[in-house]
Amino acid sequence: MAGQAAAQATASPFVDIADVALTYGGAAAKGGGTLALEHCTLGVGKGEFVAVVGPSGCGKSTLLKLVSGLHPPSAGRVAVDGEAVTRPLKIVGMAFQNPIMLPWRTTLANVLLPLEIVEPHRSRFRRERAAYAERARRLLATVNLAGFEERFPWQLSGGMQQRASLCRALIHEPELLLLDEPFAALDAFTREELWDVLQALWLERRFTCVLVTHDLREAVYLADRVVVISNRPGRVVMEQAVGLPRPRRLANAWDRDFVDLVHVLRDKISEVRQAA
């Protein structure tokens, strides 16, 4: 399965990052600004789950901004689904370390927010509110939040808020899900619980997913392929396929082949950090 996705990636990657550079705060030519990424090339196949790991400050989050079209590259080309990304994409769902739910809306209304904004749902929203609410309820139920729809986000635990945040990222059925360390602020048990929630959602819907994380076990547990980024300026220094069968189980997360993969990644990152 992972092999198939990789084959697709070589043919015509769904997300195609080609020799991209990004400088924050002014052009590099003028000597100012921070070079976040340089000569960065990465392809993600349709329906593939890719995890991006690397030392902190290496430009992992920047990569997501490029893919989503929130930030244009300083050099190189970013394309999604065959088209160059020149403005924010609308087929994208995003979730961050901070769930940033709106405290004046109930959990259900928070999950519905994207539908009030993105077309074609936007123009239908008023008429079909009941149907959309039902859809949001079903999605909340799949992440075990049934019964919490009318609660306010601040009445939920951190893990529950993050689950609701995932629902908000997925409610408009995006083809591409971008996750920026979504579980980093959670305790270890909740985090592992949410790995399974995310895996189940992905197995059911098969969206393309790019997960930025600094948790190597999380990367191996969830991804088809793990990409290691170097120290700033970031560039891809290693791509490691994860051939473990799915659905993966927490019980297997201490098996030999799983742990070996984590060690390979860990060694590479240590090497990259030394180089700095």
């Binding site: 901004k65 079209g69 924010p88 609308k90 961050f96 940033i100 709106l102 927010l113 904004i117 908000r168």
Partner: peptide, 27 residues
Amino acid sequence: VEPELRDVLRSLGARQRDILVKVAIPR
């Protein structure tokens, strides 16, 4: 307004007015 939230909304195609009405003014 939290920059991440702005990103979420902009990536959905939100216009400045949407962000104002849905998020900035209520908050």
